[in-house]
Amino acid sequence: MSTLWRVADVVSGVPETETSRTIGLRVDGLMGNLAGQHIDIRLTADDGYTAVRSYSVATASMDEIIEITVDELANGEVSPYLVRDLAVGDQLEIRGPVGGWFVWRPTDTNPVQLIAGGSGIVPLMSMIRAHEASENPSPFRLLYSLKSPEAGFYREELLTLGQQSPKLTVDYVYTRSVPQGWPTAPKRLTAETLLANILPPDATPDTFICGQTIFVETVAEWLVESGYPAASIKTERFGGTGGTR
């Protein structure tokens, strides 16, 4: 079932930032995905050489079309092709969507705290979209840690949702440059800043953290030290195999 390779048509390709792009894929008979799941993408060269990578799904509709957002990794094998070369009308192969752990379901009842570092926003955006499309009344709060305003994914949509949605709060932390008129200078995320911008432990949130390994590890440690139960924290690493970059 989900483990078979299926052909996907590339139906859209829209730049998110200078180094990333959102790609729409249509797969016959696909029934969407759970919010937070990923797919595997397989590229095949003309001599049969293949490369497979996993990408989180950004959308959350019960549809034949899903979107992924790919950030180009320096020295990456697959991501530069997906960001720079892949064209609408091309085909590639996908496996999935898969994953039953780092997912949010509309039947979940706890408040939700999402914490994204850079491109780690992708599976969390899927959860936000699923939540907005549902009747689920639980409050969602997103903390989005970014190098700069220009590095943000889904900027317009998050800006609009942050202003208009009655059940979503969006907070930003900028680590290298800030938007014009921003009240604070850019700085590294600290435990103090983190805790000031998320739901408190007594709100008993389910927390999802996604980003580079060091970001995820650090934030998860701070949360546990601050009284958030480890069992309420789900983590996912993002952006290649990381760790040494």
Binding site: W5, V7, R42, L43, T44, A45, D46, G48, Y49, T50, A51, E77, V78, Y81, D85, L86, D90, Q91, L92, E93
Partner: peptide
Amino acid sequence: MGIISSGFHGKRQTG
């Protein structure tokens, strides 16, 4: 063989 991605060459580690 699957769908061919023209212009994709990869880094050839899997040999």
